[in-house]
Write a protein that binds this DNA or RNA. Structure first.
Lengths: 130, 130
DNA sequence: AACTAATTGCAACATTGTTGCGATATTATT
DNA sequence: AATAATATCGCAACAATGTTGCAATTAGTT
């Protein structure tokens, strides 16, 4: 089995996630640590973090890919089926950990995963719009 | 105002959509008509079709962008807030026109649009899996 | 300190999408 | 049917994002 290592680059990425309340793109992360490591390294670190369930990957309505830290509740198995909100104005993506959609599927489909993304105006931009 | 024209390329693209029950990517469409027109032309036609509400754009869980013909019900204004199903095996995306999620949002968010994509096994692949 | 394997940097490549501009083709007009 | 106006196209060039191979480096272990 593989034993993950704590490298400078990985620590730097995790620190960024720790500080951010919103989801970040590869580019946004890389910009903050371009003197620490290579562009490719950031891609690889993100891949590993997603694989290790430390970070989850979110695809925006536009197709923009972002990443956010997972919030593990207790020791339970972590499921990513919560909703995400994508603000049309500031372009920030926020996890709505408590919003879970209910829906009725046709027969004969086996649902393994869901992606529920809402877009519009976040509380911040809604206020500044008045 | 602009008056849309019926060009050979546009007709070819529309014909492909007519025949397909699933959502198609730019690449999939272009492969079928690469002797008819340029790659860029396909991009532009898709853009226009989306703008004219003839086709809608779907972003997969992976970030794959696909397009599918809109089904207009009566003369009503067309809304794209239906669900999409993305099969993990055959990678096909199907519109679930009748699946609409219900959910409760926190206050202070203004929701303009939603994207609800489910992934798993489609009826076809579910059967062939037994 | 030496060893092993995870991780990195670099260079090169692939895919997807965009833009500018002169040429072409469609539609409406005469 | 010929003409005019302009929507659309082809091409070339570029940009952004992501991937891969491989040799060099480095973290964690013995």
């Amino acid at each position: 089995m593989k034993t993950a290592r704590n490298t400078t680059a990985k620590t730097a990425v995790l620190e960024i996630f720790g500080k951010s309340k919103i989801a970040l793109s590869h580019t946004e992360i890389y910009k903050q640590i371009e003197d620490v490591c290579d562009r490719v390294t950031v891609y690889r670190i993100l891949d590993r973090l997603v694989n290790d369930d430390i970070v989850h990957k979110i695809v925006d309505l536009d197709g923009t890919v972002k990443y956010a830290k997972c919030h593990h509740h207790a020791q339970r198995v972590h499921i990513h089926n919560h909703a995400h909100f994508s603000c049309e104005k500031c372009l920030e993506i926020t996890c709505l950990e408590n919003v879970k959609p209910s829906y009725i599927m046709p027969h004969n489909y086996k649902v393994n995963n869901i992606n529920f993304t809402l877009s519009g105006l976040c509380p911040n931009c809604l206020n500044s719009n008045i």
